[in-house]
Design a protein around this nucleic acid. Sequence first.
DNA 1: GAGCACTGC
Length: 699
Amino acid sequence: MGNLPILQFEEKILETVDQNPVVVVIGETGSGKSTQLSQILHRSGYTKAGAIAVTQPRRVAAVSVSRRVAQELDVRLGDEVGYAIRFEDRTSERTCIKYLTDGVLLRESLSDPELKQYSVIILDEAHERSLNTDILMGLMKRLIRLRASNLKVLITSATLDGEKVSKFFSDCPILNVPGKLFPVEISYTSEQPKSYIDSSLRKAIDIHVNEPEGDILIFMTGQDDIEKLVSKLEEKIQSLEVGSCMDALVLPLHGSLPPEMQVRVFSPPPPNCRRFIVATNIAETSLTVDGVVYVIDSGYVKQRQYNPSTGMYSLDVVQISRVQANQRAGRAGRTRPGKCYRLYPLVVYHDNLLEATVPEIQRSSLAGSVLYLKSLDLPDIDILKFDFLDPPSLESLQDALKQLFLIDAIDENGTITRIGKTMAELPLEPSLARTLIEANEYDCLTLALTVASMLSVEGTLLPGRSKSTDKKRKHPPSDLPDGSGWGDHIQLLQIYELWDQTDYSIDWCKDNNLQVRGMLFAKDVRKQLSQIMQKIAKGSLDVKRKERRRERQHDYMNLRMSLCVGYASQLAERMIRHNGYRTLGFKSQLVQVHPSSVLRTDDEGMLPNYVVYHELISTSRPFMRNVCEVEMQWVTPILQKLEKLNVNKLSGGSNQPIENKEENSNITKKEGNDVGPCDDPNSRIQAARDRFLARKANK
DNA sequence: GAGCACTGC
């Protein structure tokens, strides 16, 4: 620690912080900024007036960095130095250096908008541009005006683009701290390869045969690519002449790998053996693999993006940004000089790649963030004019406002309602928060809490699409409940309830092919949600498990009604003659029930007339994922509400919405399945109503 | 009848 580059700048840092409310610190990997900045400020007395908060985008980082700082200061973790992440608060009254995830700091500012307990707030790793960090930066800009005399804000970033952040904070000073990376020699291909899998394969074998020892890290886009490349590599290595080169070990590395497989990359390789680590971008920032000397960069990444005009998510393979390319290259130079092979030409790097990755705030649905900002009740802030470092599109903000209106979180003037305030307290997406509140009214909160918790997990069911079990096609080998035909939400509920009856047995999860991590996470979420719901209602809430009722169907109905209210903008109506659906949102889409759904058909093979869905995802086709049957008489009032909707009023009354600052051209918008002639919302709603009446008459 | 990158309150 003694020779961390940042310590040579201690005086300069203190002087700059002393004279400025905001300072940007640029420090590459290994500069020590995450562990040292807080200590430097602590030493010079900033903690006398309040604590120092250091935010991290990831939980593991908050924990591990705070642990190291506690060690360096020789204090017990949780005393002077502590951390706070979801489900875990290891701080005390003595804590004066506190590491937390950016999401936790946002939660804290909900109950204390001025964050008075802190004298210094450090937003670390701001270059990653997480949704929460971006919102925090906007809030900090306002906070330093309010607390000019007693708050210091530091923004740290690993890339050289400090200019932009500095400009955002009224041209605040930028300090540069060198890092400790070794040089990385970068090479390019002369042409864009036809297949980056084959190209990676050739390059990896070439390195293995011709280059000195050192592990190879290969960046792929997803599990599929990784599995293909791993088997091709193994095959190729087998065919190499024995003794012609050193041993080899091929290791896949991606998020859905079970933990015991993931940690394999941390155990040192056997002697005289080269490791091939084939990874997603999990190895870009989240996990650091020691021993890597060679990096092969496919130039692609899988990215999830939200299209506000269709309400649809898609998961696309896109080109990485130059910042990302450099981050990947840097992974080769952590322990000694390395080499990075980019599988694309230099001109592509210069001319085709974006300078920086499109920030998350421009790729996500903003309903939750907008509700959060509204609930802060900042008198001087208009949501459409909120000062973002990179503003989201007007369309995206208006999409969020419309969603919030439909679920009663804001009124027709865009003002937050009491329900909306309550929703913001819940660490859930707004639709689920609304469902809980409604469920409380219908006396089925227990069930809704479970469904909300299960939906907060992704990939709970059958994590490995095991090709081996493919033989038994129709019914996957499991005795898990099927949702009684109502749909996926009910199935999730039933699964959790069964697990609950086994006293949360890990073996039970394994026996049933359920992801243990996911189930445990759901349990934590459920506990947290129950506590918050109890606090909010200050009274007796139906959060405890009641004795089993015989009237399960009645419970399910109440639950489905609650979901219908919570997901008012995510309802769909089946077509007359087939099992395709048309969404009933602002813009009608033709969609299908995802084949993994347990939704049941009737005697004539037809799916329910109306459903609620958790998410629209466009893969090979647009699908509704997690679907549940609802009744048409629940849907009608919502359609009527849709009719009343006036975006301009929602946006704050102005008839002329402000110009969108910058068209977000980085995201190629997928044309959804626009239903076409019914583009005018009013005529569409009229049409939906006519169909509704026709159905009713038919009954 | 398809398949999911990574985070996080």
